[in-house]
């Protein structure tokens, strides 16, 4: 395991070097805090924020992409090449979310080439959190502010320097590429990291997560969905800011004899999400749609993939225009589970 330190004054140089033959995505300042952006100028990179307002999932799973184009009698595949990409400064929750997305897009041995072409070329340098954000609850859903899943390199902010730990071969290769700028981590550094990790985990409050899947199934007809449905506005904000939401819609667009088939993010909160061609809609109420969102993450995904599809980043909570808080919903579901 390669463990290095990088003086913080050299971060820009580090990124410039690694960005030479890669697309570089990193957090930059934004009016909503920070956002992931493709950066050409590493001096713009801002590592002071915690979670970016939007998740970095669009680096590997863009909001929309063309699957193929067509003309009267034939279709053209789109080129599936993707460039080497460095996703720098994603928080451990976001890195873990990429690991979850990987499971979906390779589910049951069926690979999604559109997703994988980008994912396979993406090297993730996760940045561990020293303090939690305003709505963070990663430890409650099996994550950690210093978690390693989904990342190739895990970085710690030690004040004067960044500690970098390679987690995969790709991560190791990346660190070697920049070895002129880094130094081998000392025992002292490693101890500092351990201490920081312990500190960080301690600061997160645990919230109850309903884990009894049978009881969750029972909650399908529970009353709580009714009121949540009244509150829920039916916008797609929670799904679009979520690092693990992966539902998409496929539509055709045509124009003067040519067309293209595009895949777009979709959200189960939209009433059109389940609208059939016949006009029938199996999810008629917002209550049913909100329930779907919660149960998909905490019941159906555990059934299908063995774990909940929530990494506790809290973006849905900070961004919900109706003030809905997933943590509160989970708490209520947990107490329901206890009763039944």
């Amino acid at each position: 395991m390669l463990e290095m330190t990088l003086d913080k004054s050299k971060v820009q140089e580090f990124l410039r070097l690694l960005g030479e033959n890669r697309r570089l995505f990193a957090p930059v300042k934004d009016r909503m805090g920070t956002k992931f952006s493709e950066v050409a100028d590493p001096s713009l990179v801002c590592l002071d924020g915690l979670n970016t307002n939007l998740s970095p999932k669009e680096v590997v799973f863009p909001q929309w992409e063309t699957l193929y184009t067509f003309k009267e009698d034939h279709a053209n595949e789109v080129k599936l090449a993707a460039q080497e990409t460095l996703l720098f400064g994603a928080r451990p929750c976001d890195a873990r979310a990429l690991g979850l997305l990987d499971q979906v897009f390779t589910w049951e041995g069926i690979d999604d080439p559109y997703y994988l072409r980008r994912r396979e070329k993406t090297c993730v340098v996760a940045l561990a959190c020293n303090t939690p954000g305003e709505a963070c609850f990663c430890t409650s859903v099996g994550g950690s502010p210093v978690g390693e899943i989904g990342a190739d390199v895990l970085a710690f902010d030690l004040g004067e320097q960044l500690y970098l730990r390679a987690l995969t071969e790709r991560g190791e290769a990346l660190l070697k590429e920049a070895s002129t700028l880094t130094e081998k981590a000392t025992e002292e550094d490693k101890q500092a990291v351990q201490q920081a990790a312990a500190e960080a985990e301690k600061q997160l409050q645990a919230i109850p997560i309903p884990k009894d899947l049978a009881a969750l199934k029972e909650s399908f007809d529970a009353e709580i969905w009714e009121e949540l449905g009244l509150k829920c506005l039916g916008c797609g904000t929670c799904a679009y800011v979520c690092p693990t939401c992966h539902c998409f819609d496929i539509t055709d667009e045509t124009k003067k004899g040519v067309g293209r088939r595009v895949r777009n993010w979709d959200s189960c909160a939209f009433s059109l999400f389940t609208l059939h061609g016949s006009g029938h809609n199996p999810r008629t109420t917002q209550a049913a749609r909100y329930r779907q969102r919660v149960l998909h993450k905490f019941l159906y995904c555990p059934e299908n993939f063995g774990e909940a599809f929530c990494v506790g980043c809290g973006r849905c909570i900070t961004n919900c225009p109706a003030g809905l808080d997933l943590r509160a919903v989970l708490e209520r579901l947990s107490s329901l589970a206890k009763v039944t």
């Binding site: 184009t69 003309k71 053209n76 667009e253 124009k255 293209r260």
Partner: peptide, 8 residues
Amino acid sequence: IKKFEEVA
């Protein structure tokens, strides 16, 4: 105007 990629 909405632009499409070139379609061969």
